[in-house]
């Protein structure tokens, strides 16, 4: 059995070149938006805007500038499926299309998915969406086909600054911790790891080194599993059914003289 594999993304060395986005699209043969016609966001250098069924990698450009533009900084982060150890999408999928692989990654089998879209709303990170060509839900597979052949995922292979690191989770955590300590030593006290420990959904097999709050990067501060509401929601419904049953019994049994 192979060791759990994943990504560690060091956002401090991302330069926003989008090589990972291109490599992902090319390897996975993902179609272009709007048939390839240019679609500019108009308010950012980021024209991809978000992860979806045809963008399994997305380099976020976080533009933190003062209103007078005298001071500011760019934060860049190559976003991807987090391959959660406890995955919300896998929990809710009614067809069994979403599976956990031998590498502890989460993959949607496109030939099984029927496009019900339950996983889209269940993902705490907004990663999944429908691929309009296949009509099925799609997301990063962590290049399952390449991993099976002993290769590095296309995005990590293409990354020119090693912002995207691929390897065993054990090695990646060691590397990430060393980098955090190095940054702290250089005075960047805000550096920390997002999703590396088991508190967050059992651990994210794609975790990040960030230097600002998760919300700044468009990441949820406290992602949860969708099943947290299952028991309470079912119990309230059962109670509602009992109440309606009792009200029905009383209403239908208690007849007035003019009920004929």
């Amino acid at each position: 059995m192979p060791e759990p594999m994943g990504f560690y993304t060091d956002t401090t060395v991302c330069i926003g070149c989008k090589a990972c986005e291109v490599a992902c699209k090319e390897w996975n043969q993902l179609p272009a938006t709007n048939g390839g016609r240019a679609t500019l966001s108009g308010d950012s250098y980021d024209n991809t805007r978000r992860l979806d069924g045809i963008h399994w990698r997305h380099v976020k450009f976080i533009e933190q500038f003062a209103p007078d533009r005298r001071d500011g900084r760019w934060l860049m982060m190559s976003d991807v499926c987090k391959h959660c150890v406890r995955a919300g999408c896998l929990e809710v999928c009614p067809t069994g299309a979403i599976i956990r692989t031998e590498f502890d990654t989460v993959v949607i089998q496109s030939d099984v998915c029927n496009g019900c879209r339950d996983c889209i709303g269940a993902c705490p990170f907004g990663v999944i969406d429908i691929n309009p060509v296949s009509g099925t839900a799609q997301k990063c597979t962590l290049c399952y086909d390449r991993m099976r052949a002993g290769m590095t995922p296309a995005c990590a292979q293409a990354c020119p600054t090693t912002s995207i690191n691929f390897g065993t989770i054990r090695e990646l955590k060691q590397k990430a911790q060393a980098r955090v300590e190095q940054l702290h030593g250089r005075g960047e006290r805000g550096a920390y790891l997002y999703g590396a420990d088991e508190k967050m959904l059992g651990g994210l097999n794609s975790f990040y080194l960030l230097v600002d709050k998760p919300e700044v990067y468009g990441l949820p501060p406290d992602p949860k599993l969708p099943s947290r509401n299952l028991k309470a929601g079912s119990l309230w419904s059962a109670l509602g059914a009992v109440v309606i049953g009792v009200v029905g019994l009383i209403s239908l049994r208690t007849r007035r003289p003019d009920d004929a």
């Binding site: 879209r117 889209i120 709303g121 705490p124 990170f125 907004g126 990441l219 949820p220 501060p221 406290d222």
Partner: peptide, 11 residues
């Protein structure tokens, strides 16, 4: 809240 970082399922 964390639920605001998700995407709608187009239902």
């Amino acid at each position: 809240p964390s639920t605001f970082f998700t995407e709608p399922p187009h239902w």
